[in-house]
Design a protein around this nucleic acid. Sequence first.
DNA 1: ACCTGAACACCGTTCAAGT
DNA 2: ACCTGAACACCGTTCAAGT
Lengths: 239, 239
Amino acid sequence: MTPRREPLSRRERPAKPALSRQWIVDTAVRIMRAEGLEKVTMRRLAQELDTGPASLYVYVANTAELHAAVLDALLGEVDLAGETAGDGWRDQLLAVLTSYTLVLFEHPQLARSALVARPSGENYLRLLERIVDLLSRSGASREQVAWGVDKLLQDATATAAEQSTREHDPAAEDDWNALTRALHATSRTTHPAIKAHLPALLSGSVAERMRWGFDVLVDGITHTPVPGTADPAPPTSVS
Amino acid sequence: MTPRREPLSRRERPAKPALSRQWIVDTAVRIMRAEGLEKVTMRRLAQELDTGPASLYVYVANTAELHAAVLDALLGEVDLAGETAGDGWRDQLLAVLTSYTLVLFEHPQLARSALVARPSGENYLRLLERIVDLLSRSGASREQVAWGVDKLLQDATATAAEQSTREHDPAAEDDWNALTRALHATSRTTHPAIKAHLPALLSGSVAERMRWGFDVLVDGITHTPVPGTADPAPPTSVS
DNA sequence: ACCTGAACACCGTTCAAGT
DNA sequence: ACCTGAACACCGTTCAAGT
């Protein structure tokens, strides 16, 4: 506590805080918010923390683990209450999944990494708990709920991964235009089915499709028995 | 045709073929098959083609476009006939989607890029045509078919992206173990729903889950009306 | 134990210059 | 028009050496 002059080394840097996993992840989140996940590299992060990249490896195994930690931090923003929705489990489930999707929408590349590197952080577990709970109120079987939760999260994550990059990435627009042109350019003789469904293939807003996709899944999940349970299931010839 | 001695420059290289988009893509596919998509870089590809990376930019706009071309080449391997299946549209649809998924399973990272960069190559269009045709035989509305096809392909692609990387990536195994441990470590008081569904949350083989996921989607797609059509739809409050 | 400098082995993309 | 060398501006990760 005695004001015995700090050495004032490192010129004047304002109180470079000690390295720690928490501090590293927080800084990574800050960089992502400001400039996107693609800028959250070991080297850039080290620079931001005023050290060399090698120092980070004491706290973080590799870039994938770093991104996983950033993802979990972000999942803390998901509105688990589903406040905006009514009282029914279905509306609340839709609200929670929509909130999850919107959070991922804000951060394009993170949705992609979520599809690949299975999260297991505390915020992810909280989200999972909430979704299992809500879906179980549908009255579906344990197995339907368990497998269904996976499908719901996969769908939301994939939608975010698809859509979000289309919003933020300049080239994504071109891809969509290319597909639109390609579909319109198909001939009636070689691609009759596409021709016959053309307007509908490209119709609907993102929100409309998301909403419909949710209904499709919930209807399907609650009405399709899981094979190998008490429910009368179709014979499964798959290993 | 006269055997007038070739200059025999460049030492002895065996007939370096002229650069062309086709040749570039073919070489890229060969590298991917041998060493994975992560090795299909502009620099590595140029090296394989015995030139400098800058030369490739005459034929290919960037790495993303290159990967898209590789993906479309690969889609040529999908079994569109669904030979193995019976006569019903449902079995054939399952067969085609399974074939699509299996092709992506072989090449992990490509599935991920397929989720992001909407393909529009000729092989993709052929696949799309076939799936639209099969699903339309269900008798579902034009809109249900059109939007449903998207969901089916998204589901298959996401499953491949998720699963495949888990198979090929050494670290993916660890992720799954981490999740398994995290789920088992949850407390009954903070995560009761997870606890109650635990065995089922982790049960089922990939094939079983894929099969069930297909049934869920087809059931849901054919029974959930698309909003804004003649079908009696639930009121949509989403923009 | 924690931190670091320096190195190794790579990337994508551009651009001026050549043929 | 096509091709290229060389450069610019980056990467992740490791390792021996320091404190």
